[in-house]
Design a protein around this nucleic acid. Structure first.
Lengths: 242, 242
DNA sequence: CTTGACTCTTACGTTACGTCAGGATCGAAG
DNA sequence: CTTCGATCCTGACGTAACGTAAGAGTCAAG
């Protein structure tokens, strides 16, 4: 009955579907028409409610079958799952928003909207990974200082330039004036991010040391900074400092 | 190449899929193996990004085909769609949360968790519909006064009782003392909700007059209050008042 | 008895891949 | 040259929750 279906906010086809799945089996007339009773309405309401919460029909059947013994636990799990979904949704929305505002501001006519979105998503990935390597309070500190996309881009450029300059100076004396100038720039960039906070410094260190476990595209991103010789040179130069 | 796939964070099977859909057609070796170039990597990044935004693969193909002329418009639409999805997610999460807290507090041992969730969802529906009948500022007023589930339940009970009492008094004189007492109760309940605010009163009136356009299950919910005789009696009684 | 409005069942279409299954190809070792 | 394990290929079916015909029976009214 279409009338009955509309009453619960579902289509007739959905009722057939639930019937075949065994979720809701109404009585039949001798000619085969489905006849829904008041108890069926109740049952349907429950099904629709659980469906609204994003629970798959098969599980709904099982849950209503066991008459909800572990229902509270199942709902807790579902809530957690939904919250995770929302995080992803938020990230997608934010990526579009930020790309839109940046493009509208006309700041970067050289990059296309799509490229900007890719950057945004990658940045969010970075942020997510960093989160995993710091304690909650440290993470608070990190987010309180606003780390804007512009600052991120600036930092990337600064580090890239510094690495290029160091590579060109590998033959020099680590204790010499040119190497020491590079060491100064290095330390300044480090402090620019850590703000001199030891917690943050430790988090970054943790993150960096776990390099082997990073996802592939993540490692790809830091490839320009993986030159071992540069790191060795800087270590010596920094040791000569102070 | 599995290595290549992992680099972009997708599976080999997904690459095959994109290939068949025409989204990403790499060159082949004479023996039929797929050979991905740098340009393919770029393209794949774009596909993955748009997929992250929840855009179906077919549309991605079309968008990248027309080389993104209307891409800004498409992204705006997608953002709006995602925001709508998020609203639904929020509602589901909130429904579970509220039901959990109510149950944990042990306030209603008579109703099961599932029943409570159904109530929550229906209440949210109500709220959503009310929103459509009031201006933004009026809506602000309504939400500032906290309308808790407990108050809602209390109001429902009060109205139900009042209706029962009025139905039992239909034979009396609308100007008589018993009818006037009922009229007083009526006005008090009205003011309990509107707070005497004319904007709110108008919104409620709008909402009520559009009754025929309400969704079915919504009308079902107010069925106990649809007795025409009661309304007629109360109109006369209220006219005699003051 | 004929209509028009419903209802029934059967079955394919949708989305973005996962998961075999059966075979071909590759590079290295024997 | 052959063999072997690893990798790659192409079908093809499965998934979730219905939408959408298609062909046929049923119901109530005229």
């Amino acid at each position: 009955m279409a009338e009955f279906a509309e009453l619960a906010g579902v289509t007739v086809r959905a009722l057939h579907h639930y019937d075949r799945l065994g979720l809701l089996r109404p009585k039949r007339t001798r000619t085969g028409y489905r006849k829904y009773t008041a108890r069926d309405v109740e049952r349907l309401e429950q099904v629709v409610a659980l469906k609204f919460l994003g629970i798959p029909l098969k599980q709904i059947g099982a849950m209503l079958g066991r008459n909800g013994h572990d229902l509270p636990a199942a709902l807790r799990r579902q809530r957690v799952a939904l919250e995770e979904k929302r995080r992803l949704l938020d990230r997608a929305i934010e990526a579009i928003q930020r790309a839109e505002t940046v493009i509208q501001a006309g700041q970067k006519p050289d990059t296309t909207l799509l490229t900007k979105i890719i950057e945004e998503i990658e940045m969010q990935d970075n942020v997510d990974w960093m989160k995993k390597y710091s304690s909650d309070e440290t993470w608070d500190k990190l987010t309180r200082r606003q780390w804007t996309p512009e600052l991120q881009e600036r930092a990337t450029r600064d580090w890239t330039e510094l690495f290029r300059d160091v590579e060109a100076a590998l033959e020099e004396d680590p204790a010499g004036p040119r190497a020491q100038a590079l060491a100064d720039r290095w330390m300044k960039l480090v402090e620019g991010f850590t703000g001199g906070d030891p917690d943050i410094t430790r988090s970054v260190s943790n993150l960096y040391n776990d390099r082997p476990n990073w996802p592939a595209h993540f490692q790809e991103q830091i490839k320009p900074f993986s030159n071992k010789a540069v790191w060795a040179f800087m270590n010596r130069a920094l040791a000569c400092r102070k």
